[in-house]
Design a protein around this nucleic acid. Sequence first.
DNA 1: CCGGGAAATGTTATCGGTTTCACAGCGAGT
DNA 2: ACTCGCTGTGAAACCGATAACATTTCCCGG
Lengths: 348, 348
Amino acid sequence: MVRKATIYDIAREAGVSTATVTRVVRQDPKVKEETRRRVQQVIDAHAYTPSVSAQNLEAGRSRALAVVLPVISNTYFNRIFDAAYWEAERNGCSVRLFQTRENQAISPEIVSELIRCRMDGVLFAGSIWSTDRDDLNTALDKLGKYMPVATICPPDVALDCICIQSDLVNCSRLPVRHLHTLGHRRIAFIGGSMHSKDASRRGAGFLEQLRQMDLPDDPAYHVDAGYDMESGERAVLRMLSGLEKSRWPSAIVTFNDLVALGAIKQLKKMGLSLPQDMAIVGCDNQFFCAYTDPPLTSVDLHPEEMAQSAVRELLLARESASRSFAMVREATLVIRESCGAHLGYRPL
Amino acid sequence: MVRKATIYDIAREAGVSTATVTRVVRQDPKVKEETRRRVQQVIDAHAYTPSVSAQNLEAGRSRALAVVLPVISNTYFNRIFDAAYWEAERNGCSVRLFQTRENQAISPEIVSELIRCRMDGVLFAGSIWSTDRDDLNTALDKLGKYMPVATICPPDVALDCICIQSDLVNCSRLPVRHLHTLGHRRIAFIGGSMHSKDASRRGAGFLEQLRQMDLPDDPAYHVDAGYDMESGERAVLRMLSGLEKSRWPSAIVTFNDLVALGAIKQLKKMGLSLPQDMAIVGCDNQFFCAYTDPPLTSVDLHPEEMAQSAVRELLLARESASRSFAMVREATLVIRESCGAHLGYRPL
DNA sequence: CCGGGAAATGTTATCGGTTTCACAGCGAGT
DNA sequence: ACTCGCTGTGAAACCGATAACATTTCCCGG
């Protein structure tokens, strides 16, 4: 390994002071053209570039944002990360990822690591809400003292930071309304784990929506489950096997597209044909939705746009005084074939 | 925003020198118990933690690895990243992501950024091979002077760095052999873009495999395509519509699972039933493979294990002299139902 | 030929740590 | 009483940059 040339090496070799080297690097106009050329030559010869650590130390910041989320391998989250990455990039910032894993809680270790690294801002996404509410506030308050904080969160959390709220209202309303329009009356919900604030809020929103439309909210139509495909399979099995066929729902709204994938598999295994015997709605509008069989109607929360807004606000907040506010990106329903809309289908 | 306590603040308040504070932080045993306690108290009171930039500057390194790949939102790559992340984490390192986007080339900007940041090592994954070969060698040579370099690359690239080779031999051989065993004789290949070294190598391996097994290698059975689902759809359409039905292949090997997803959709749209009328093999064994209809038989290159090895070797290379070597993680075929293996199916 | 002001460059403190080396204090051995 | 060696601590240099301030150089008008 070779030692990288420092500003001192360049200065010495070019016969100038380090100040002048800095000026050349930063394109300060008040360097004589001749000097500039001489210094630039040495710089080029050594492929010199200033050390980031030194710059960060001097500047007291890192030109880096942190994105904290449960798992990068989940499509929803990697879309968030990807969008944040490019938006930051456009603004000359890098993005550092922190994964909290399934436990989804925001640990004191992460908080102090964020501070240690002098992050220019931090974006929390995913159910960090399962952190005890007091702990969460403590953590956010502490962080807020050192850097702008943003979250992609449910609408009613009201944290003292930049809140980009996911549109959980429409996330519940749109599928139910769509199914209702198509004639469905018995609509079931397969939610994420009820221990998660996010999921229980989704479940609650769903029930509320049913009542608003005078649809039955049979508890048997509401099954707790995880976030993945296996959970979807199991949940469907559990729900339907506990019910006489005559009481089966005609449609299932799922927590996300992965759960929907599992549900579809299980339903087919049980010999149902989709969407005739059962309609399905997913959530997240993942890349594979157009390629399931039948193509999956799904709610898009527009994670990319939320992440983009979050990053933009974080970068703004760096300059101005601390800003704490909330905004919502409205969810949309992407209609494909899993509810039979293309057939003009009407269930009994 | 609050100023974070520095080592000087702590030293002053505890009435000791900064050296002693460092000793306490680093648990140096030669601090008197009483002093240690006093300093520790002040540290706790301020929740003091040393600044990462300062440490990095002093140490001349960053305790961070770089992972360079085309796009994080592709499942194959986020599995690599995820595995690298945790392996690095286990060793007290962080991981910084660089995305090259579709252009997939390794740019001089990234090279100099990596050096600027004093990365402790870098892992390249994905088809950076589309970089001009000379440029690539120049870049790797240059980087190699400053940090250990690893790549996840095709087997015959022979770069002067840590090469974790993906098992492209079996990646071609396994599907063909499997299909052959099931009785298939007319086997087609839908590859990635032939401009990519990676893809053309896969295509070549496939042809070779056909010849070895005395199977026809009709050029009409070999279609150039992209890496995504749309490409898969288009490729199938193009291939089959150019061929009389009697000459249709009975099986298609695809470049990856996304292409397979597209192919499946198109085949169904054409009224074929799978796997009876057409067998399909994917590659990457992505999370959704068990949930396609029919469940997709796919080659697993074990990206996680490759990434893990790469990171392990990078960290080792930091200490010892520069190591340049190659290793292969053997690919495996995950058999599901898209080739009809479960039916004991034999095509004509 | 000189003074003044702008232009060009240099000096130096600073960012927040780590580390080397020096040194004070103290008990033990002779 | 004196030296030796050990323990605990501090002073100061250094890592690689930046920026405020100081100084030199240069050119021009008087």
